[in-house]
């Protein structure tokens, strides 16, 4: 297991570095005078020159890249260029919690819905149930997340006042209960938006295991119950496709998060990235983008580790 993780490390580092480089290049070619936007009304040529020197703006591209990289690796994320010039590490710290909560709850909701509905539709052996489940998945996978969010928000929060309206309550301000009650609804949207792919993959895998695999027949011939057959035998062997989807989806989720944060007015990573890129806030943008890349890479590593835990063949091959 350890060897597998170590073997993956170089790839992971390359991907994170590459993403940082890509982000850096994008920020580099962005037009607009950073110095002017920092100084605002206090613009003087002397001050501008001083700031340019501070930010290494007059250095060539690669030197600037490596100096940024050096700072990043040593944990110096710098300060935001936009007033009130907060520490980027503080900005990240504030943005991570809402996004982390949303991703966690959203992913849990998606997996529970995906696995649950797939098992329901397959185990019931009932065509009507199966059709209904498929239809739900089709609807959810064919409505863009923001439309789903807008419609459900209007319906549940404004018309029926069933859920807390938009906005974000930090646990320090309103306590964890309030915090979670506010994040749960956007997480649900995220979950609804992601579960159909998982459900379809899992359902297909379940069906193919149940129909084609001899070990299922053997288990049936042993006389054990359908419940035990599914939970003890088939579920685990069907989970590998689901894991792959979870891994692939992580990157897609981040895109979804940006949109859902915009609808619900949640100050998370998506908002931070979007605003910092739009406002040419290079330190904040680079740090947050690289952070997302690290998150994606680590999530994929976790998926591979889960794979090895669930499949003894992979585990043996890795060690």
């Amino acid at each position: 297991m350890l060897r597998m993780i170590l073997g993956r490390l170089p790839q992971m580092v390359i991907v994170v570095l590459g993403t940082g480089f890509l982000a850096f290049s994008i920020m580099f070619v962005l037009p607009g005078d950073v110095v002017r936007s920092i100084l605002g009304d206090n613009y003087t040529p002397q001050a501008a020159a001083q700031i340019s020197a501070q930010l290494h703006l007059n250095q060539p591209f690669l030197i600037r890249y490596f100096s940024w990289l050096g700072d990043f690796v040593t944990g110096q994320l710098g300060t935001s260029l936009i007033p009130p010039h907060q520490q980027v590490s503080d900005l990240l710290g504030q943005a991570l919690l809402p996004t982390g909560e949303m991703l966690l709850f959203g992913q849990i909701i998606a997996i529970v819905l995906g696995v649950g509905l797939a098992v329901l539709s397959v185990a019931s052996r009932n065509r009507v149930v199966d059709r209904i489940v498929q239809a739900i998945a089709l609807v959810c996978s064919s409505i863009p997340g923001f439309v789903l969010g807008l419609l459900l928000l209007e319906l549940l929060a404004v018309q029926f006042q069933l859920v807390s309206p938009r906005g974000w309550v930090a646990p320090a301000d309103g306590g964890w209960g309030e915090n979670i009650s506010h994040i749960l609804f956007p997480s649900l949207i995220l979950g609804l938006f992601t579960f159909p792919v998982m459900m379809r993959v899992f359902r297909a895998e379940l069906v193919s295991q149940l129909d084609d695999e001899d070990y299922v027949t053997l288990a049936r011939l042993k006389g054990i119950s359908t419940g035990r057959l599914i939970f003890r035998h088939v579920l685990r062997n069907s989970s590998f496709g689901l894991l792959t989807v979870v891994g692939i989806n992580v990157a897609r989720l981040v895109g979804g998060v940006v949109v859902i944060e915009a609808i619900f007015g949640i100050p998370g990573m998506g908002t931070l990235i979007k605003n910092s890129v739009q406002q040419h806030d290079t330190p904040a943008a680079l740090a947050s983008i690289t952070f997302v890349a690290i998150f994606v890479v680590v999530a994929n590593l976790l998926v591979d580790i889960a794979y090895a835990i669930l499949d003894p063949r992979v585990r043996d091959a890795a060690s």
């Binding site: 982000a23 994008i26 990157a251 940006v258 890349a293 890479v297």
Partner: peptide
């Protein structure tokens, strides 16, 4: 992999 790990919205914003 890099393209995949890169939040797709960023390029659009940029």
């Amino acid at each position: 992999d890099i393209i995949f790990a890169f939040p797709d919205i960023i390029l659009a914003v940029a």
